[in-house]
Amino acid sequence: MQMRTIFFFILSITHITSFSQSSTLESLKKDTLFIIKKNPEKGFYHDYILFVPKEIPLSNKIYLLVEPNNTGRPTDSMEVHKKNAIDLASVSSVGNNISTMLKIPLLVPIFPRPASQELMYTHALDRDVILEKSPTLKRLDLQLLAMIKDAKMVLDAMGINVESKIFMNGFSASATFTNRFSFIHPQIIKALAIGGFNGELMLPQNTINEIKLSIGT
Results as ranks from 00 to 15, higher is better:
A151S: 11
A151M: 12
A115Y: 01
F171E: 04
E132Y: 11
L144H: 00
M78Q: 15
G72F: 15
Q117A: 02
V154S: 00
D87I: 11
N97R: 12
A175C: 03
R180A: 09
G170Q: 04
D87M: 09
A124N: 04
L131K: 06
P112I: 07
F171S: 04
S59D: 03
E118D: 13
L137C: 09
S90K: 15
L201A: 10
I166E: 00
L140D: 03
G170S: 10
H185C: 11
E132P: 15
A193W: 10
T176M: 09
N70G: 04
V129N: 00
S59H: 04
F183P: 05
K82S: 08
T71P: 07
L88M: 11
K138W: 01
E163M: 07
K149Q: 14
A173G: 02
A175H: 06
M120I: 14
K82A: 12
T71A: 14
T100M: 11
F183C: 14
V80C: 10
P114K: 01
L155G: 02
N161Y: 13
L201W: 07
R139L: 08
S116G: 04
H123S: 15
A89S: 12
V66N: 04
A115V: 14
A175K: 14
Y121F: 05
L137D: 00
A115K: 00
D150H: 12
T75Q: 09
I188V: 10
P135Y: 14
K190V: 10
S77P: 07
A175P: 12
Q187F: 06
H81P: 03
V80S: 15
A85E: 11
T122L: 08
R113Q: 03
P109Q: 14
I184C: 07
F181W: 01
L88I: 13
V94I: 12
V108F: 06
T176I: 03
V80D: 15
A89K: 09
H185N: 10
N70Y: 07
D128Y: 14
E79C: 03
Y63K: 08
A173W: 10
N70I: 12
P105M: 02
N161G: 06
G199K: 08
V129L: 06
L155P: 02
N60I: 02
T75H: 12
V66F: 00
Q143Y: 11
I189S: 02
D76R: 03
F183K: 10
N97D: 13
I189P: 00
Y121G: 05
T136S: 09
L201M: 05
I194C: 02
P109E: 15
L192P: 02
L88A: 10
T75G: 07
I62S: 13
S172P: 05
L102Q: 08
S182W: 13
M153D: 01
P114S: 10
L107M: 05
A157S: 07
M153N: 13
V91M: 13
N70Q: 06
V154R: 00
